[in-house]
């Protein structure tokens, strides 16, 4: 599902974010990318979204070679990838329903699909009763659920999560992890960058550790360190 072959990323200012990274993630896997700040976790995520291009090496996502993907096909790649961030990235002037519907609306899904799928996914993330609330009326955990619902409403093949629990307290983080686990069990490949040690240790999933742009560990059912 995700494959990086000897990927190097050097930013224009000369910083080497990733060097000679080779990683394969199978369909349906749950993978933690761990490492300190600046180890290359975010670059890893950005490369998969083709927000950045690899300097060297090949990246395949959902069967597509990203280097050969023309810029007008990038949106179609991204429709197969859900994304969740530390800061939720919700629109404050839209309700929970509208925030999730927005993701379908802007890729041209018809209204009947939106009206069916949005309540369905919000039910799945446990917010079936908060459709008409605004983000500032929700707790941090609930806001992150909305953003997960938005990431998943178009049924992506891959879910990329960049520090999704970074702004949440430990017990809320556990709830979010349960939800991501649920998303993973319905067949979505999940790739989560984090430095939340407790969560990684509790989940016992595959762990890829990055340090200064190198893969220093790739361990099935691993712990944080």
């Amino acid at each position: 599902m995700i494959s990086l072959q000897r990927v190097t990323k050097v930013y224009r200012n000369g910083t080497t974010a990733l060097e000679d990274v080779t990683v394969d993630v199978e369909k349906g896997e749950f993978v933690f990318i761990v490492g300190q700040s600046g180890s290359g976790k975010s670059t890893f995520i950005r490369l998969l979204l083709k927000e950045e291009e690899a300097t060297k090496g090949d990246i395949y996502v959902a069967g597509k070679n990203l280097a050969k993907l023309t810029s007008w096909k990038v949106p179609h790649l991204r429709r197969n990838i859900g994304t969740v961030f530390q800061d939720f990235k919700l629109l404050q002037d839209k309700t929970v329903f509208e925030n999730v519907a927005f993701a379908l609306e802007v890729i041209g899904k018809p209204k009947h699909v939106i009206d069916q799928r949005v309540p369905e996914i919000l039910e799945l993330v446990g917010l079936g009763d908060k459709l008409n609330n605004f983000p500032d009326e929700l707790s941090g955990g609930e806001q992150q659920r909305v953003s997960i619902a938005r990431a998943c409403v178009n049924r992506p093949l891959v879910l990329l999560a960049d520090e999704p629990t970074g702004n949440l307290d430990p017990s809320t983080s556990v709830e979010i992890m349960r939800l991501l686990d649920k998303v993973n069990r319905i067949g979505t490949t999940v790739c989560m960058a984090t430095h939340d040690q407790a969560i990684v240790d509790a989940m016992r999933r595959r762990v890829i550790e990055l340090d200064k742009g190198h893969v220093v560990r790739d361990q099935a059912r691993g712990v944080y360190s």
């Binding site: 007008w72 949106p75 991204r78 990838i81 990235k89 890729i107 178009n154």
Partner: peptide, 14 residues
């Protein structure tokens, strides 16, 4: 909003 639109795969023309 535009950032989110790009993330969820809205085309440039959209």
């Amino acid at each position: 909003e535009i950032g989110i639109m790009k993330l969820v795969g809205a085309t440039n023309w959209r």
